[in-house]
Simulated scan of single mutants.
Amino acid sequence: MRVIIADDEPLLRHHLSKLLEDISSEIEVVACAKDGVEAVDKIKEQQPDAVFLDIRMPGLDGLEVACTINALPKPPRIVFITAYDHYAIEAFEQGALDYLVKPINEDRLEKTCQRLLSKSGHHGQVDSDQLIQLLEHAQEKRTSNLTWLKAAKGDDIHLVHVDDVEYFRAEDKYVTVVTKENEFIIRTPLKNLVRMLDEESFWQIHRSVIVKVSAIGRVSKDITGRMHVEVASTLCKLPVSRNAHSLFKQM
């Protein structure tokens, strides 16, 4: 089965590609795309059997890509991936075979692959009971963790969604919250904050830094052996303590 992965997060593309190939030797990742326009082009060019499609992408979003490729003579099976479970109903209206909520659970992904590899029909969707169970599981997982931050910028207080945060950096008595567009300040100590975040989505890589895993573009070492992660959107380099090196050796 030939597969394309379309997601604007480079680390997720790499991680998902490796997981798929580890799950079954019958699955071959033939291409990856970083946005919706590139996804459509590669799907037309490669004509894959299935596509793992992020919903929130630049250019065309995942739902728009699905609408476009469903008009092809031989459309691929679609598996949507997103951190936002409220898209699920619309995703299934676009003919999704399945729906995965970030961070991706390996057991859940294996079940998805079993559906993809089955010979029963081209668009064998998950039934309504399975969809309800999936959404309930996703909601339980998300509500157990911190969702919104009340953060200061100047004299104003902003509500910042945790999914929009790239990393947290402790500085003196404050913690700086960094998104793609802005920086904010909160007073919650990093040691308290790390317990409130989803441990699969956010890693404490240094005593002063918590980073969103999907925001990491690459990991590098300097000549002294010190490790840094580079945030994909800003190319900002963040230090990795020696105790946290094992997080990346396991990938």
Rank of each mutant, 00 (worst) to 15 (best):
A91G: 13
I210G: 12
R2H: 11
C32K: 02
I27A: 11
R142W: 00
S120Y: 08
V30W: 09
M196C: 06
I186M: 02
E106K: 15
H137N: 13
M1T: 06
V30E: 02
A6D: 03
G124W: 05
I132L: 05
E106Q: 15
V211A: 15
V30C: 14
I4V: 14
G59V: 06
L100I: 09
L159I: 03
S118W: 04
A232H: 03
K42M: 05
A66R: 04
D164Q: 15
C32R: 03
N192F: 02
L16F: 06
D98R: 09
G124E: 10
Y84F: 15
D49A: 12
P103K: 14
I43R: 04
N105V: 09
T188A: 01
K180P: 00
K150I: 02
T147M: 08
L12W: 00
N182S: 10
W148C: 00
D156W: 05
Y174C: 02
V231R: 06
Y87R: 08
L72A: 13
K173P: 01
K212E: 07
A71R: 15
V40H: 07
P103T: 14
T224Y: 14
R77K: 13
L146N: 03
L12G: 05
E106F: 13
F202V: 02
A96T: 11
L238C: 11
A244G: 08
D7G: 13
L197S: 05
L12H: 05
D155Y: 10
E199Q: 15
A33N: 04
Q250V: 10
Q139N: 09
V175S: 07
H245D: 12
D98I: 07
L149E: 00
A6W: 02
Q130L: 07
R169N: 14
E183I: 01
H228W: 08
L197W: 03
N182W: 00
S241H: 12
S233E: 08
I186T: 04
E200W: 02
F92N: 10
D127Q: 06
G121W: 02
I205G: 11
R226H: 15
D7C: 09
E199M: 09
K111L: 14
V160S: 08
P73K: 10
Q114K: 14
A232N: 01
P189N: 12
Y87G: 10
K44M: 03
L12C: 05
K153R: 13
F92I: 08
A152T: 05
A170F: 01
Q250C: 04
H86G: 07
L197G: 04
V29D: 08
P103S: 13
L146E: 04
E200P: 01
V211F: 02
N182K: 06
S201V: 01
K191T: 13
G95P: 08
V213N: 01
L100N: 15
V101N: 11
C236H: 13
A151Q: 14
E21P: 01
L197F: 05
I69C: 08
D85R: 11
R142T: 10
I27L: 13
I81L: 08
V101G: 12
L135R: 12
R195G: 07
I89A: 12
D98C: 07
V37N: 05
